[in-house]
Simulated assay, not measured.
Amino acid sequence: MSFFGVGNPFSTPVGQKIEQATDGSLPSENWGLNMEICDIINSTADGPKDAIKAIRKRLTQSAGKNYTVVMYTLTVLETCVKNCGRPFHVSVCNKEFISELVKLIGPKNDPPTVVQEKVLSLIQCWADAFQSQPELQGVVQIYNELRTKGVEFPMTDLDAMAPIFTPQRSVPDGPEPVLVGSPQRAAVPQGSPTRHNPEQPTAAVSLPFLNFFLSLLF
């Protein structure tokens, strides 16, 4: 059975917030809602699991239909990874979830280049950040598989990116998390750090390689 489970993922408190924050009619990202989502994930036992279910549902139901919703959802996902703790990281880096992200940018959905680059950049960033953490190797495995098959990832200065930062917890729930980057830097930079400017040139993703690989997988 899939770890994502069944039921309406938007019926939970965090699921409701995710549905609101990824509404395609929003003029831009709602950073207040995004940070509320992080707070719920960090302060409730079911928050990480419920959030990943809602994010996955939002992505799968919007793929090939509404890429504004997809981009808002990827922004929520990225913000949560940067601001939430180990339980959420374990869910995100699960190989099944990363495979869902890869399917999202497959030829079946005919996604725009901006979405393909965003997904590949997130996978690359997480693989680099979590490469030494045994529980989080699912994303590393998918990243290495894609590279082995010839997928070229967007050129990203990983050192210059905002760090993946795990907030301090009032009640420890295990070993101290490893901080990626400088903990003094803000987990969410000022402005809209995860918005992608389509006018800003980026290194081309090798889409023929990607599409060929995805056609073999799916």
Rank of each mutant, 00 (worst) to 15 (best):
E96Y: 05
R195A: 14
P198K: 15
I164W: 00
A162L: 06
K103S: 12
C125A: 12
R195G: 09
R56K: 12
V115P: 08
E135K: 13
A204K: 13
I105L: 08
T79D: 04
Q124I: 07
F212V: 08
Y143H: 15
D128R: 13
V115N: 00
C125V: 14
H89R: 09
E117K: 15
Y67I: 05
C125G: 11
N83T: 15
P27D: 00
C93Q: 07
E96Q: 05
T166F: 03
D23E: 14
S206Q: 14
G181V: 12
S215L: 08
K108F: 07
Y72S: 10
C38W: 00
D110E: 13
P163Y: 03
P208T: 14
V115Y: 04
I123L: 12
G181I: 08
P183R: 13
L216G: 01
C80Q: 11
L120F: 04
Y143K: 05
R185N: 11
D46Y: 13
V188R: 07
F97R: 00
F213G: 03
R169Y: 03
P177R: 08
R86G: 10
Q184V: 10
P208K: 12
Q61A: 02
P193C: 07
R195W: 08
P175C: 09
L146G: 11
V115C: 09
R58L: 04
S192C: 13
E78R: 14
P27L: 05
F153V: 08
F218T: 12
L120W: 01
L146I: 02
F165K: 09
F165C: 09
S91V: 05
S91K: 14
L26I: 08
V102S: 07
M155S: 15
C84Y: 00
L214P: 01
G85V: 04
E19R: 14
Q137Y: 02
L74F: 09
P189E: 06
Q20S: 11
P201K: 05
Q61F: 00
F165V: 02
G106T: 10
P48W: 02
F218K: 07
P112V: 00
E135G: 13
S121W: 04
